[in-house]
Amino acid sequence: MTYPPVTLNNGVTMPALGLGVYQSKPEETTDAVVAALNTGYRHIDTAAAYFNEIEVGEGLRRADVDRAEVFVETKLWISDYGYDEALHGFEKSARKLGVDQIDLLLLHQPLPTHFDKTIAAYKALETLLADGRVRAIGVSNQSPEELDRLIGETSIVPAVNQIQLHPYYTQPEWRAANDKHGILTQCWSPIAGAYTYNGNEKNPFTEPVLVQLGEKYAKTPAQIMLRWHLDHGFSAIPKSVKPERIRENFDVFDFALTPDEIASIDALDTGVSGSIDPDSLTLEDHGWPIPE
């Protein structure tokens, strides 16, 4: 089994599994990107609000991999929403990454309190796509209702909606909305980590279903979860700065789960996010400026 691509709704292909760098400290990010690319990853996901795009760019240059082989994805922060603001946000990200073209550019949050700015920012992404500055555009953390509104007021259906998704939080309604519009579901936090549900801590690394499947396939619970994402047809962007964990997360292409095994993992869903509500973010509370 090989490193699988997924085809976006505009025909662009993207490696299904990528390295995420959320909360990766700047001083650790470059080495993580180099380790990932040298391991075989060809997809890196970052964001302006992670404040490590410069280090991602340095990793792209240091790795022994041609830039044309790497799918680079980043996100605009809400403080750069609005048409002209988003165009400038792109320029900041491209400059920090050291690239002329970004493969996938997303709006990081829906910003419902200023959805007019969200729409204007997305129209800027459409302009960047038409100009060839980006290869694909999309959104992140957008609910079914927000997707419907955005699609109704813009011209190009997003290629990707990056949302929180893992075995304890499977997001069936949001996935169905993405599928309805032909939007790829991309998963942040694909390996759940410690998780509190009904006052009890759930740990996927000791979850019997995942442990038993790991024993069957000689894989770790984390590898089973990532294979579950791939077998569902999702894109997943696990984060790590440890070379051994980066390699482990990539070693998921030599087996596949059966439909019954996939269903047994689906059944772990709690329906509880355990994270911040994306709609709660406002410019007043989270509109920190993105430096040049």
Rank of each mutant, 00 (worst) to 15 (best):
A35W: 11
N38S: 14
Y41N: 12
G89Q: 05
P110G: 04
P110Q: 08
F115P: 03
A47V: 13
A49K: 13
A68K: 13
A35M: 10
K117G: 07
R62C: 01
A94I: 02
H43I: 04
Q109W: 15
F71C: 02
Y83L: 04
K117V: 05
E85F: 04
A49Y: 14
E91V: 03
V99N: 01
D116H: 14
H114C: 07
A47G: 12
V34H: 11
K96W: 00
E58R: 15
Y41H: 13
A86Q: 07
A63L: 11
D100G: 12
K117D: 13
Y81I: 07
Y50M: 08
I78T: 09
F90M: 07
H114G: 01
T46I: 11
E73H: 08
D45R: 05
G98A: 06
L60K: 07
R42Y: 08
A86F: 03
I119V: 15
K75N: 10
Y83M: 02
A63C: 11
F115I: 12
L87A: 01
E91M: 01
K123W: 10
L104D: 06
W77H: 03
L97Q: 00
D80N: 13
T113N: 10
N52V: 09
Q109S: 12
A63G: 11
D103M: 02
L37H: 07
T74E: 05
K92I: 11
I102V: 12
E55I: 11
V70A: 04
D84T: 13
Q101G: 00
A36P: 03
G82E: 09
H114N: 14
L106G: 03
F115L: 11
D66A: 14
R95M: 01
L76A: 07
K96D: 02
I54M: 09
L87C: 00
L76Y: 05
V34D: 09
V56Q: 13
L111W: 12
L111R: 11
D66P: 00
T118K: 04
A121H: 06
S79H: 08
R62N: 07
I119G: 03
A86Y: 10
D80P: 00
I102R: 00
T74L: 05
I119C: 05
V56L: 08
P112I: 06
K92T: 10
L87S: 03
G57S: 12
L97Y: 02
A48P: 05
Y41E: 10
V56M: 11
Y122A: 06
A48S: 15
K123D: 03
A36T: 08
G82I: 09
F115V: 13
G98D: 02
L87G: 04
D84R: 13
Y83W: 11
L76W: 08
D31Q: 15
F51Y: 15
A35T: 13
V56E: 06
I44L: 08
Y81H: 12
L104T: 03
A49D: 12
A63W: 09
A68R: 15
T74H: 11
Q101W: 09
N38W: 07
A35F: 06
A36Y: 06
E53Q: 14
N52A: 12
I78C: 05
G57H: 02
I102W: 00
R62I: 02
V65R: 14
E73I: 12
E58H: 09
A47F: 11
A35Q: 08
G59A: 09
Y83D: 01
L97K: 01
